[in-house]
Design a protein around this nucleic acid. Structure first.
Length: 919
RNA sequence: GGCGCGUAGCUCAGCGGUAGAGCGCUGCUACUACAUAGCGGAGGUCGGGGGUUCGAAUCCUUCCCGCGCCUCCA
């Protein structure tokens, strides 16, 4: 083995072999275990969030696979309608063309071409992450099978009346020219104004004042509303006002929606351009005046002079016209929520159009029940609140998009305006007995991308065809995803799964946090703070990193500050950490919180951990080359490390079961570094290096080194697949194992520590305390770690004396103890530094070296601390309430503590007296 | 309005029984598995107040302070 850990070379070689050998496919006849990958955008690249999520899914899959489950991690990608179409349109723009220049068919061809070019990127990244997905089952939401599932679902829902077409107010993106669902609209606060307009009463007797943030919409007003109980306006209800500029007479109506306290308590109602007004308009049967075009300019139904104006130009013009008419009451600064499309960032308009909808209530009810009844469990549980909150208030889902890239809506129209849904034009004709001379035109629109994503848990398994995979792997075991798509995706999968499969799509939903940068900012291209997971694995120089962050920026002017920040944070680029270190970092960040700051300091630490493991393996391999099958005898240290390993295995199982990969990672780290390496390897040295030691004892230790390390590798494999495989390949023969890969070895099981082993475990704990005591003295007295020191024992029990003799070898070798001698009760000790091991005083005589005053100060400090601890304990034990109310075990523990403190104090006092005598 | 967060300089565990880890800081060290290391050490009234409890970082708080995300008003 190389002297240090070199991840790059190992990783590429190992993954290729796993894949060639077909290790990722479900195998055996164990219970099925299935995770569906949340399909990333086919034309995108994996970002840190994906890499984090993939690490979790891979760890879970590998864990279950090793446990003998028939494990499937289903891969695939999403066509991501709007996002992908935008990317390709942008490419066309650079060629000076638009999608309309190409026409629908050619444009879609162009998108497919782009998909082929860029689609491999994600797969390559997944491979570099070590993802053990079953590539043979790879799916794409637009492939033939999944498209068939989409059509099937649409047609069935249509036939049941759960999909309908209607003219409704939708969120309209005037740049992309498509409807958006509520979820695709993001609102942000921006500085705006509140204009107060006077609307003259038709009676000619005065006016009412309405306040608006969107003056131009007054061109589409069809009423003014007040609260029915508002005394100020009660007399006016039923009267009319004359809309200035437009000249239309509109009624004053009463509606509970109006908040009398806000503004003037008088609201203009524009049913065609505001969601709340739309509802009021429907309640009161008001006319709906659409005043906009697809581009959000004003249409021909507005007065001359406004037609064709952009909405924001129209706003200014309306305001100045009101002003010149003397009808502008006042203008206030006001913070308004501006809705923007999540892709285009254009200001979205509520707009009346014909769209397709899913009638969602009938689907939502069983989906709510599934979570209420516990058939689906959210982890952490708190996310159920978010889920319910949305589900109880869910609105019908607008599923049509005016795009070209996506599943075309399987609905046809005849000249009479009749609508037919079917899997194809032929299917429609057959079903409805339509003659061939009846002209049918297919709907131009495509379906919301999330419509196909909602079917992912069963469409990927071959639905609607019945087949074995569907039987075995539906429902999936767990869905791993971020809270940001609980509504977009999780809820919809639950609804569709229950509807079409008759069962929930997964038993558990593990919701992880979102990866943010070191300052807690969301990582995004426009912020210039993105990190490519592969750059953390392979490293990247500063220039390449700068180029990645600044090319193709939407907002070119941000470039200088992004460059500056990047140069400051990564003056030398990013060093290579390797995949295993990155994965371990992600695992340790997988806590229950919702924000995860990615701090480069941690990944470095885990690279060091890899190196530590690597070198521990080198030590084991170097020292077990001559291992043979002779008789073995286990040392106390062998027993001890076995017990500690067993406890670690148990902890890891528990933490995997509760999705606390951070705790699992921590438990393994602690064991590997601070028990196996720091102690066991050191304790093994005297046995292995003994010139005339017992051969059986040496064999026992060799066997133990190999077995513990081999078990540790299996324990660690789901989190660090590459380094564990690499080491395991070399270690397995020595452990007498014949498997081809660690991937398919059984995951370690905890057996529990037997009573027979407990004395040896206690002995080694005593040895550790002894050595720690010596080290502490050495450290605080600035005595070189290599210099052997003599030790005297005072007040040692029979057991301690026996242990000191039995483990003299360990003490001298690991603790660098030169000699151990007892002090009889009456004897005067020499000047010495002291450590306490229970009732025993451990003295290191240091004539000439020791500073008596320093040692006295040290002991006094300890004395003071123990003294205050004791007082604390005594106070508790003196408290009747405590004695009466606290559990017996807690009281007992407190009593033991009192005894320990008293012993310690006594020892410290005695030692201080002796020092005093030395003066 | 709903959800959540505030623990060592930094990133985070702990969530009813005397405050923990990693990194950083700091002393001593090459004793060949590892200097990507070893061995010591310093550092925190657990955002503040109030309450429940024998006991609170941990539970409560229509009380403050600071910070996120989602939702809603012209």
């Amino acid at each position: 083995m190389d002297k240090s850990y070199q991840p790059h070379e190992i990783e590429s070689r190992i993954y290729a072999r796993w894949e060639q050998q077909g290790y990722f496919a479900p195998r055996g006849d164990g219970e099925p275990y299935c995770i569906m990958i949340p399909p990333p955008n086919v034309t995108g690249t994996l970002h840190m969030g994906h890499a984090f999520q993939d690490t979790i899914m891979d760890a879970l899959t590998r864990y279950k696979r090793m446990q003998g489950y028939k494990a499937l991690w289903q891969p695939g990608m999403d066509h991501a309608g709007i996002a992908t179409q935008m990317v390709v349109e942008r490419l066309l723009t650079r060629e000076g063309k638009s999608r309309r220049d190409l026409g629908r068919e050619k444009f879609v061809g162009r998108v497919w071409q782009w998909k082929e070019e860029s689609g491999g990127q994600i797969a390559r990244q997944l491979r570099r992450m070590g993802a053990s997905v079953d590539w043979s089952r790879d799916r794409f939401t637009m492939d033939e099978g999944l498209s068939r599932a989409v059509t099937e679902v649409f047609v069935r829902l249509y036939e049941e009346g759960l999909v309908y077409r209607g003219k409704r107010l939708v969120n309209w993106d005037p740049v992309l020219h498509t409807a958006l669902s509520d979820l695709e609209v993001l609102s942000s606060e921006e500085d705006g104004q509140l204009w107060h307009f006077r609307y003259p009463l038709a009676s000619g007797d005065g006016h009412v004042v309405v306040a608006t943030t969107r003056p131009e919409t007054m061109l589409g007003d069809s009423a003014v509303a007040v609260h029915p109980d508002d005394e100020r306006y009660r007399a006016l209800i039923g009267e009319e006002v004359i809309l200035p500029v437009v000249g239309r007479r509109v009624p004053i109506i009463a509606d509970d929606y109006v908040d009398a306290e806000f503004g003037t308590g008088c609201v203009k109602i524009t049913p065609a351009h505001d969601f709340n007004d739309y509802e009021i308009g429907r309640r009161h049967g008001l006319p709906m005046y659409n005043i906009l075009t697809d581009d959000a300019a004003l249409n021909e139904d507005v007065p001359d002079g406004y037609q064709g104006l952009d909405r924001f130009e129209a706003r200014d013009k309306i305001v100045s016209e009101f002003e010149s008419l003397g009808l502008l009451d006042k203008v206030e600064d006001y913070v308004v929520k501006i809705p923007r499309g999540d892709r285009s960032h254009a200001v979205v308009e509520p707009y009346l159009t014909d769209q397709w909808y899913v009638s969602i209530r009938p689907l939502a009810e069983p989906a709510i029940e599934a979570v209420e009844s516990g058939r689906i469990r959210f982890v952490p549980e708190t996310w159920t609140k978010t889920y319910f909150d949305w589900m109880y208030n869910i609105q019908d889902w607008c599923i049509s998009r005016q795009l070209w890239w996506g599943h075309r809506i399987p609905a046809w129209y005849d000249d009479a305006g009749n609508v037919y849904a079917g899997s194809s034009e032929k299917d429609v004709r057959d079903r409805h007995g339509l003659a061939s001379d009846v002209v049918l035109n297919q709907d131009e629109d495509v379906l919301d991308t999330w419509f196909s994503s909602a079917l992912w848990p069963f469409s990927t398994l071959g639905w609607p065809d019945e087949n074995r995979a569907l039987d075995e792997f539906y429902p999936g075991s767990v869905l791993v995803t971020g809270f940001d798509i609980i509504f977009f995706w999780v809820a919809r999968m639950i609804m569709m799964g229950i509807k079409f499969m008759g069962d929930v799509p997964f038993r558990e939903v593990y919701i992880h946090g979102l990866i943010r940068d070191q300052d807690g900012q969301k990582m995004s291209k426009s912020k210039g703070n993105i990190l490519d997971p592969l750059d953390l694995i392979d490293g990247v120089d500063l220039d390449t990193l700068l180029a990645k962050r600044t090319t193709g920026l939407m907002q070119e002017h941000l470039k200088p500050q992004i460059e500056k920040a990047t140069r400051k944070q990564f003056p030398d680029g990013i060093p290579a950490f390797g995949c295993d270190a990155l994965r371990y970092t992600f695992a340790s960040l997988a806590t229950t919180g919702r924000d995860i700051r990615f701090d480069l300091g941690r990944i470095e630490g885990y690279k060091f951990f890899c190196n530590k493991l690597w070198n521990a393996a080198r030590y084991v391999l170097m020292n077990t080359a001559d291992i043979d099958q002779g008789e073995t005898e286990r040392s106390a240290a062998d027993v001890w490390i076995g017990a500690r390993l067993d406890e670690t295995v148990a902890a890891v199982h528990e933490h995997f079961g509760t999705y606390r990969l951070d705790l699992a990672a921590q438990a393994i780290y602690e064991f590997t570094w601070h028990e196996f390496c720091d102690w066991y390897l050191e304790l093994s040295k005297p046995v292995l290096q003994a010139k005339d030691g017992s051969a059986a004892l040496k064999r026992g230790t060799q066997r133990s080194l190999v077995d513990v390390l081999e078990t540790l590798l299996r324990l660690l494999h789901p989190l660090m697949p590459f380094i564990t495989e690499e080491i395991w390949q070399q270690l397995a023969p020595r452990a007498g194992l014949e498997g081809d890969t660690i991937m398919l070895q059984p995951f370690p099981e905890a057996a529990g520590v037997s009573d027979r082993d407990k004395p040896a475990v206690a002995d080694i704990e005593w040895v550790r305390e002894f050595i720690l005591g010596v080290r502490q003295i050495r450290g605080e007295m600035d005595v070189s770690p290599g210099k052997p020191v003599p030790v005297l024992l005072a007040n040692a029990s029979r057991e301690s004396r026996a242990r000191a003799t039995r483990y003299a070898g360990l003490l001298s070798h690991v603790g660098r103890v030169q000699s151990v001698n007892l002090i009889a009760d009456g004897d005067e000790p020499p000047p010495a530094a002291t450590a306490l091991i229970g009732e025993m005083r451990l003295l290191v005589p240091m004539a000439g070296i020791i500073d008596v005053d320093a040692e006295r100060r040290r002991l006094e400090k300890q004395h003071g601390k123990v003294r205050s601890d004791l007082e604390h304990t005594l106070a508790k034990l003196a408290n009747e309430d405590f004695l009466n109310n606290a559990p017996a075990a807690v009281v007992e523990k407190e009593r033991q503590r009192r005894a320990e403190f008293e012993t310690t104090l006594k020892q410290l006092s005695e030692q201080l007296e002796k020092l005093q005598a030395l003066g």
